[in-house]
Amino acid sequence: MIEFRLDSTSGVSPYLQLVHQVRQALRLGMLEEGDQLPTVKEVVARLAINPNTVLKAYRELEHEGLASARPGVGTFITRTLSDASLAAHGPLRREMGRWLVKARQAGLDDESIEALFRDTFRSASAEDVA
């Protein structure tokens, strides 16, 4: 069973923080298929958050096919994230390494590289939404 936490300074909405924590636990192998997530009441009692926030996070996980609710029992993990995506990490990392070399050759320092990455990432996500 994982234990949720909330960072009130992150600027990320509470429900997304819960979703991210489940995804991260799946990636790191801390959660596996068949594992039960804490009940809504357990999360509410621990974090003092709105039950709708927990429900929304669990619905999002269901929507992504990562979890499913069994009425009267709880919410269970239905899929793991680690193996499939881990295989892709290597090639992506190599590609990004080559990109970093290019960026440095062009004269960008670490901060500019980070800013450029974040900005590109943000506009790409915004286009996805739009």
């Binding site: 909330l6 009130s8 509470p14 809504v40 009441k41 009692a45 003092a48 958050i49 709105n50």
Partner: peptide, 25 residues
Amino acid sequence: LMIAVADDGVTVVLSSHLVADLERV
């Protein structure tokens, strides 16, 4: 308060200056 909301679905109106608390609840 939040356990009561989870158990009974009571509607709550809460005045507060503590926005960090409101962000959670």
